[in-house]
Design a protein around this nucleic acid. Structure first.
Lengths: 187, 187, 187, 187
DNA sequence: GGTTAAACGAGACGGTACGTCCGGTCTTTTA
DNA sequence: TAAAAGACCGGACGTACCGTCTCGTTTAACC
């Protein structure tokens, strides 16, 4: 059975409200009561759709990154399969960096909310698997699993905000790319 | 004026209680009411001394890492000044890694509690300054500031717990050291 | 929209718990935490319904005196409209005195809690308006407003307790009635 | 042994601080921490001198009314012994009313603080005994004890403030006097 | 078009943490 | 060695939040 029309409408309204609250007041400003009120929706609806605060933020993140995930999984090179490892890695970090730079507050709120089970988040697992695969391909001798975690650890919302300035909005991305190249080695 | 004797006693009791609760129930288990009760201390005392949940956890972290900080600042090589950059870097990461491995839960709780102003934490600033200094010395061309943040980002409590196993309790540290060497370059 | 069933249930439970605590330990015994616990209700519920300690006690008082208020406003003489001023006054003081004698502890706790805005309390305003009206009718030349306040001032919980004994449980009421007659004049 | 000089100084400082806080912020503003701080004195000193919050306010009241008490006890008529009952009663109410009008906030705070044992306060007992004696002398058939309580009940700080206006600063006193005359009877 | 089951809004609820404040006690320091 | 300073205890208050639940009311999908 497909999603009912009103359900889809509400889903959208809730996500939009969340985004609005994130933008105007930071992560702590996003209480589920406020989200529901701003979305013109009952609190129960938010929970029925998203399960929890973490689920709500995850869904928003999911939405922001779906495009990248699809491009990575089955898009054309250099994001998708086929390109050399270095190019693919840089393209991926460029894409994810762009998302992080545009959604730093959301990233931060999501990390805060997920707390313990960050590594169970499907998005995280996808990014990690992709990164680890690339690293393993480029440096079979390295501890790809850890290095992938380490690279993803730099996508901390607060860190992104801390190094991103209006004058140089891509500073973070370039820095991560350089770090990744160092990790991959210069050979 | 030095700290009053009873004040010092209470400070100790509160920190010990915090530690005990952290050990037995994870970060969420540490509520300030419980800390006060377990320490045999009024709730007001906890707040007077530590200001907030974040302050309490910071103080505990501070205590755990004071020794390392002093060794780094003015101890003998290779931790202290005098040793070659690589040795100093590895020694520092070994020390901080050991702390992180032993206090992963505390690290996680602290990150959660500090939320927004992690980069204002004096401990963090010290580690960052030290790391950035070493990196700048070893790789004058690199973005030492960012790389230091990136290395410290791997000291995420959850990540540490995730990669640390009883069979290989220093896995995290070794991995970070390897990453640092890669960052520093292999020349 | 009428009050929800569970809301009504809880309202009742909270008021009952308050009453029980008042009875068993005096006004100071009524902390909102205890009320909530005894009522089997979350603390937030107490605050949502009653706003504050003062609001809770006011609600309890309100309940105790609603019957009298309705009888005064629209009941049969001598309480309600229609009876001669003296009879109505005595009947009113008899009713209010009975309430005060049965709820002296509650009266005392309420006065303590209301503190500053006692004169804004709707119950108080109603009693005052009624009394002042009667006095003005009986003694057009008197300062009815002040005299009404003065008569109500004798309904101090502590004073009621002080002059009420098991042997003469209506002593307070009779005394107030005599005072009121004196105020009204003997002509 | 007379009071030590510094003790007297402190006593004065504490009372002055109390008064200042009462004036600037109302009764709730007078916390003992603030009093001590404003007096430049340790909190313990306040308690050693005055025993409790109630004791502090009582002492302040005591000071304000000592003169009247002495005049009533052994001063010249009409306040002191010798004058006809009516004159003595009116003079007394005039004196006490003046104090109440000038110290309404203090009266209110004191009532709030004394809570349960208001009738044990030496000042209150003195006023009550005096009033009851006068009433008994003027109306041997009346319930002098209760009537004295009732008259004193009108000296409620909030009521005084409520009926006192800058244009008519003695309104309260005159009203109480009229009430007292009514109580005493018109014969 | 009517029926029906779901999804919904509104928001109360339990429970719990936080941080503030206060009264009164008691220890430590100091003069 | 007594008094001052002020840290301390215990606990109340009020606020906020999450995730659950209740209870009528739409409303969309189906007959």
């Amino acid at each position: 059975m497909p999603e009912r029309a009103d359900a889809a409408r509400n889903r959208r309204a809730v996500l939009d409200a969340t985004e609005r609250l994130l933008a105007e007041g930071g992560g702590d400003h996003v209480s589920l009561d406020r989200v529901a009120a701003l979305a013109g929706v009952g609190k129960g609806t938010v929970f029925r759709r998203f399960g929890s605060r973490a689920g709500l933020l995850q869904a928003l993140l999911e939405e922001r990154s779906r495009e990248l995930r699809e491009a990575v999984a089955e898009g054309p090179p250099p994001l998708g399969p086929g390109a050399p490892v270095r190019e693919r890695l840089l393209a991926f970090l460029d894409g994810l960096g762009a998302i992080a730079e545009r959604n730093a507050v959301l990233f931060a709120a999501h990390e805060q909310a997920c707390a313990e089970d960050k590594y169970a988040d499907p998005s995280y697992r996808f990014w990690h698997a992709h990164l680890a695969g690339l690293i393993a391909a480029g440096r079979p001798d390295a501890d790809a699993d850890f290095l992938a975690h380490a690279l993803l650890a730099t996508f901390d919302g607060d860190l992104v905000r801390h190094v991103t300035t209006p004058e140089d909005p891509r500073h973070f991305t370039r820095s991560v790319q350089r770090l990744a190249l160092a990790v991959l080695g210069s050979d």
